[in-house]
Design a protein around this nucleic acid. Structure first.
Lengths: 252, 252
DNA sequence: CGGGTTCTTGACTAGTTTCAAGCAAAGTGG
DNA sequence: CCACTTTGCTTGAAACTAGTCAAGAACCCG
């Protein structure tokens, strides 16, 4: 299955060989659960950067888990203003809200080449009735997502531009770290400054200037899509608050 | 059970006589479900205005549903800045996140005298394994909550002070309406301007001035704790977007 | 009738957006 | 392989928005 100006699917990942499964922070499946999830997964979807595979207002027939790549959830106002709500990384679930309520209230766009596991909304009930443990996990993931947005809301509402930017970068870094994308303090960052601006609720120009100030502090480096954490403590200092990483978590 | 400088519990509401149950927008229980929820409810809690019955950082042993009154979820920064995340009205659930993750990441405070149904976190697993339908409802509620915060985030990030304020008032009004608290366009509003300011991510002074401008538009009236919707269309016009009411919804 | 909280208002300051332009790097097509 | 276009980044100046400070008025409660 292909979306956008996609290239062909490069093979299918069977659940028992799921690369995410190795991550120690993720809860292990029982054999029964694994068998269920294996048949629950109906397809694998490859999405090109810039393509929105879920759209506000559209009915959602599927539910997805990110296998690899970055995506972001966003909402648009009529006049084109965009607010990015959150980012999704490998092991994150997207589209649950649409699966439950039928109609999506936000859109989701791929930020990098993205691979998704596709689950049919129609079988969600099956999951709930046969595997309470998985149902529990899904609720956990929903609550976790809420938690992340809560933090984002505090960030927008109550922190200054500099704190806010520092906090967001810290947040993204920590999540990337959890997803195993960081290699000795360095990571490929797929965002443009416009993405950050739309996440932070600031103008592009002001985001640029704030970023400059932040770079001047020597706490981080960010050039040519490569982000480097130089002084974590200093960044936390600027942000005024630490982003706590999460230990155990489920995924489906 | 009493919290804050509470007065004694004025009776206990058995689930089969739950006053919320009458509301047509709420999904009806099967007899089995009702029986389960009845024993799942372990207590009723009365909280006085201004008291926080759930606190950021504390372990949560319980999960609550609002029976009557208003509450709000919030987070504080070290230096005292406060961000209100969302409000809870009758039939809304609070503390789910704490029940799932153990530790609360936000606090919840009563805005009016508040009556809550108390459910033990320990029996949540019971619910998931025996009543997938209720598990489904809980997930639905979690997703709904996320949706509301998403909207709030867009509001803070991408709307001007005037639009933002108009949108919030519209939002609160619609939710109060759903909860059956509105009587011919009029409702008791328990917030101070400080509450609105902390919700909107603006200073108190600026909120006051923005509110003035809004009142000058004649779309609404708000005096002595009484809010009145005069011209809904005009308010929507100012907000730039309509707040869609929700039809069917579950509750526990 | 105090004393506290909430609401108002004006003046001043700081923070942010908008506008306008230029530059660099990457991608496109002849 | 070289214009040419596009996209993303950068900068300064001007205009506007929002925050802070300060103080007084209105209201509420005991």
């Amino acid at each position: 299955m292909i979306v956008g100006n996609g290239r062909p699917t490069s093979g299918y990942t069977p659940c028992e060989m799921c690369p995410l499964r190795k991550r120690p922070s993720l809860r292990a499946f029982t054999p029964d659960e694994l068998a269920f999830v294996k048949q629950f997964k109906m397809d694998e979807l490859h999405v090109d950067p810039g393509a929105s595979f879920l759209r506000e207002g559209a009915a959602a027939e599927h539910l997805y888990t990110v296998l690899s790549g970055w995506a972001f959830r966003y909402k648009m106002l009529d006049d084109g203003r965009r607010q990015i709500l959150n980012y999704a990384l490998p092991a994150d679930m997207v589209g649950l809200q649409g699966a439950l309520m039928r109609e999506m209230e936000h859109s989701v766009e791929a930020l990098t080449p993205l691979v998704l596991c596709v689950f049919p909304r129609a079988k969600l009930w099956d999951l709930y009735s046969k595997f309470p443990s998985l149902a529990f996990d899904i609720t956990w993931l929903a609550a976790r997502e809420e938690q992340l947005i809560d933090e984002n809301l505090v960030n927008l509402g109550r922190r200054s531009a500099l704190e806010r930017t520092a906090y967001l970068l810290q947040h993204l870094y920590v999540r990337a770290e959890e997803a195993g994308l960081v290699k000795n303090g360095t990571i490929q960052f797929p965002f443009t400054q416009q993405h950050l601006a739309d996440t932070l609720g600031m103008s592009l120009v002001h985001t640029n200037k704030t970023l400059k100030r932040l770079l001047a502090s020597k706490a981080i480096r960010w050039k040519d899509r490569v982000f480097e954490m130089i002084d974590r403590t200093a960044l936390t200092e600027i942000a005024g608050d630490e982003v706590a990483p999460r230990q155990g978590r489920p995924f489906i």
